[in-house]
Design a protein around this nucleic acid. Sequence first.
DNA 1: CATCACGCTGTTTTT
DNA 2: CAGCGTGATG
Length: 721
Amino acid sequence: MANSIDYKRLLNPAQLEAVMTVEGPVLVIAGAGSGKTRTLIYRVARLVETGVEPESILLLTFTRKAAQEMLERASSLADPRCRFVSGGTFHSLANRVLRIHAGHLGFDNTFTILDRSDMEEVIRSLVPQLGILKGALRFPRTSTLANILSKAANLGRRVDDLVSGEYTQFIHCVSELSRLGELYRDYKKTHQMMDYDDLILNFRRLLAENNEVRQALSLQYRYVMVDEYQDTNGIQADIVKWLAHEHRNIMVVGDDSQSIYSFRGANYRNMFDFTATFPEARIIKLEENYRSTQPILTMTNALMEQASEKHTKCLFTKRKDGERPRVVDTRTEPEQAMFVCRYIQEALGRGRSLREFAVLFRAGYHSFELEAELTRQGIRYVKYGGFRFLESAHIKDFLAHLRVAANPDDTLSWIRILRLVRQVGQGRSQAIVKWMKEEGVGPEGVGRWPGMAGKEGGLGKLSGLFRSISSIKGPPRKAVERVMEYYLPILKEKFDDYPRRQKELDQLLPMASRYRSLRSFLDDLIIEPPTSPADMDREQRSEVLTLSTVHSAKGLEWPVVIIIWVAEGRFPIPSSYGNPSDLEEERRLMYVAATRARDQLILCYPGQETAPPWHDQTVARGRGNGLSSFIRDLPSEVVSFESAGWVDISSGRKRPQVRRIPHEIKIQSDGIALSQGDRVTHPAFGPGVISKFVGDDKVEVLFMKAGRKLLHLHYTSLQKT
DNA sequence: CATCACGCTGTTTTT
DNA sequence: CAGCGTGATG
């Protein structure tokens, strides 16, 4: 077995150096496509080969999937023992450690983890205590509040400090925001709760304050590797420092030009601070790119040339030939969608396969228009990013039952499941929770609540559910089945599009089967979300186009990448939306997107899409078409500029005028009446049924084929069938 | 009290 | 598009 791997043949000199340097601190600056993953894989293999126990190697990555895939590849390429290497995210490691040692910090080991929506729920419940006057200046919405508190935590800054520096639009309510921060902190403490940020913060505290724990961990993990280091924040950098404190066997790998997570406190300067913490660190640069053609790299290099803060490297490749990236003005958004579809169809006609394409964009909703067109043309796609599987209402409802079973003190989940019972809403759910706490009634006893005595028993059924669950010990599978039986009727009542949601819930069952306890199942669901239905689709069905946010496309690559941009004009943009460091990050985002492409890169934007009247025009011109402003500044040797919106490239014919985005449509009555229950057809989404009316001119339609509900469709876009 | 329809408003990205 | 508040109705 020994020395069966010919590293010299498999790796270039820089990669080889990274792989062979197994002792001491190492900083690897790895440009996009420079074989970073490959290097990590072979380094794991090398460590195992030299006799290091796989269990004493720790690989920290950005997602669980990334770690799994790397270790999987290491096992099959090199040594099967690589499968036993410990891998995961900072959050999962923190959770594992805190579940054992939380006592040192004054927590129970049974603490509850709050995911993002739980966090928002707590905040929502606390805001009334701030006593904000109605009609006062606008107060941030809940999700913004969560963003602010979370960012303050991640940066280790005070809320007031952060708000006066970066959220100047809310400067008028600084004191309320600070107060909210305190209330939130206290609430979590009394209810034994930790949010994502607390996991990290408490982990750091544990390492810093408790020598025993730190030494035990250092002993357990003798070799530590951290991927995507440019996306770690200061707290995580401290954790890395502590983990390596005893043995200093630490390798961090990252690319300062790909730092796109500053919204959660990430700072690419961590990469350079690493050498301050570990002065003896060896620095290795991977600059040869094995992914893209030279014209693509020439563009990305030129893009980064514009950056105000210079980055560390310049990529090159041996793949000299290839097309210049194309920058295409598609004029309007609908035409952009058509352009993308036509481009793909033509390539398919030339023998390309759908899975060779990805369409990338800034935010989840940017692809709506394109999704409609893809559906209309029957092009299959899966979408990454944007919505989260676990955050959809039905999954949250379902899991809330399990969470109560695991921890009857989980008030948030209690309120959620109580409100699903008929005749129980905000008032009664609060009352029931209060009553249970005061009377010391357990979950099985909810049905005895006197407030609804005499009525036939929704609460009684809930009691029954918990009675049947409480007798179950061990694996969560049975409990999941019981909850399914209980929840299914509620699901059908609550959601018109229940078949789709039921299908998603059904996927929880096989997942649950893999766990030994309900607690670990729930923890994993929150901290390391399982592959979403979209991921599964992607893996199972090969012939499918990928749509993805740039953030979710990290680390992936495709032969052809199409980047689309839409006018941001649908939303008013506050004055804060344009600070220089945001712009710098937008450029890096563009860089990440562009470097996903192997052979071809197409950037399109709707050049004539203008902002609606209420929109700040200056912002709109500079940023309205988003990343395109960086691209427009590139020299034409580097990119080819084209216009492709209104001329049909294949035939040269003029296209008919295309409808613009909804706020500009003139409504014309066509004399056909639509009513609830009518069968209709939409050009993009196919046949459906009108489920209700929303306003004078819009209806909510349930589309059978697409298996999803679309709200607020303009009735003129529907045809009665 | 619960539920529903309506109108207003709005940065985004994720562990 | 969705979350939130509001006011009417059951």
